[in-house]
Design a protein around this nucleic acid. Sequence first.
RNA 1: GCUCCGGUAGUUCAACGGAUAGAAUAGAAGUUUCCUAAACUUUAGAUAGGAGUUCGAUUCUCCUCCGGAGUACCA
Length: 608
Amino acid sequence: MLLTANKNLNIGNMSIENIIAEAVSGAVTALYGLECQPSSVVPQPTRKEFEGNLTVVVFPWVKAARKAPEQVAREIGDYLVANEPAVKAYNVVKGFLNIVIEPTYWNKVLERIAGTENYGSRTATESDPLVMVEYSSPNTNKPLHLGHLRNILLGYSLSQILKACGNRVVKTNIVNDRGIHICKSMLAWQKWHNGETPESTGIKGDHLIGDCYVDFDKHYKAEVKELMAKGMTQEEAEAASPLMLEAREMLRRWEQKDPEVRKLWETMNRWVYDGFDQTYARMGVDFDKIYYESDTYLEGKEKVLEGLENGVLYRKDDGSVWADLTPDGLDHKLLLRSDGTSVYMTQDIGTAKLRFRDYPIDKMIYVVGNEQNYHFQVLSLLLDRLGFKWGKDLVHFSYGMVELPEGKMKSREGTVVDADDLMAEMVSGAREVAEAAGKTDGLDDAQKAEIAEIVGMGALKYFLLKVDPRKNMTFNPKESIDFNGNTGPFIQYTYARIRSVLRRAAEQGLNIEDYGDVVPNEKEISLIQRLASYPSVVQEAGRSYSPALIANYIYDLAKEYNQFYHDCPLLREENVAVRSLRLQLSGVTAEVIASGMALLGIKVPERM
RNA sequence: GCUCCGGUAGUUCAACGGAUAGAAUAGAAGUUUCCUAAACUUUAGAUAGGAGUUCGAUUCUCCUCCGGAGUACCA
């Protein structure tokens, strides 16, 4: 089974939630003779405006008990106080039973968390599922943009989360390195950029190729316009454009493995990959295995022909090969053109074949935009028919588009937000803010640069990951991404501040002594309670494929800690036990922040 | 046309069917002889519209309206 749960933090063998769930279920059975599974009782954190730590909704039992909700709640509350040592008191508001946990219980919870290595995650063993996550999937004719950033960050973060949930994860990338688009760039390079290299121009390789592509489009458009002025329709003009004909010819030569074309292709692709590698490195992401469509597109054809022999697919009179998906409520789908060449779908089948050959995949996750929902619905059915055991339940991690205030980004209108530019802006912005606030005084240039890099990239990543991945989101290039409020830097700052206090505590020789008998205050309890829920948040994020859950959780944690920090002295606290509790609480909070941020692929600075 | 996704404060985002719908930002007003003010506190402001299921609906069902995407022998 994928994503086995390792539930909340245990006390003895049980989390406080489970203790309460067991006790409530026992109460319901004892009081009303009802069968009640502990798993059906889900205590939730009590809302701030009420007294208590955990709340149980009693409405489900009201009918069978034949009593008013308030009375049912009181009866269960009395039972808990009498029979469950962890329960100190309770209060009832309508059908809500608010339970107060014995305060010193929380100290044990904190101790347990502090003593848990890699708190919140589980290391995979050989018997755990092998999950392959595909993300990034760039074309080689243009540099990465904001949409890719969301894709890449989601894919990387998802991989981290799945690992933390105890899966073996293989991160993969499929590079679309062949086809007419790359020929266009190659042609434009020959015509208008001949001799230029990333070294000679100082332009990053992927950007240089992108410039070529833009030039092709510019000249091509001009040609079409000219031909239309001579009386052709747009369609005719597009077909007759000498540039387009040349590009098609180049593609033919590429497919025939013409040495000259292949050499140029390899050279230019190398430039692009060097450029992409720089971008990936700055983002802090990586891949375990990269596939290239130039290697996989022929494999797909073979697999399709195999399907034809098995009678899973059919051939039309003109020679084209199709799948009849009408039994599944979809349409007919083309898999090989009448000239025998592959389409997009065929390439994905070929890639799947190679991957399956390379790895014993239990689950395949494709991180691809929601505009391709239909494609993946079809792919799943086809892979299943063609005999891939994981085809039926492949996961299309379908994320929403990043839009500008005016709508979609359009390369033709030059509104595409370039990934490298944006990262550079974020980092320099972070540096300006730090210098303006006098935060960088006394640091050398390398330190300043390192902190700016961590903070600027943190702001960008958090901005893109805090939103529910399924939803479209808006990015306004005119307003730079914030460093205040619900942001990455806010969380990073909280971490840096804790680390700073802990450094001072160490300097002053303040150690953590026994704090078992301290009665924690409200803020401390609520922080411990939140820390205790971290593992279940990680599990839920893995189950529902949502880095946003982690982001929201860490934000709430940081906010809660900042309130605590504001109200409760640490170093100045005279009572050794109380101070120890607070130092421990701070240390654990810092660890959980760092751990959660790592799941998002975000670094945390020791000072900022 | 058909299919899918979305519509929550001015704006950007939250809310396993649970309490008085939370944050942030922008606005107004405060906190620094004190462990980092990228912080903290106070304040004002929203579920597109209509039916239904339910003790209880932003959440589930149906209808209407408004956005977005897909429906290629493009990728």
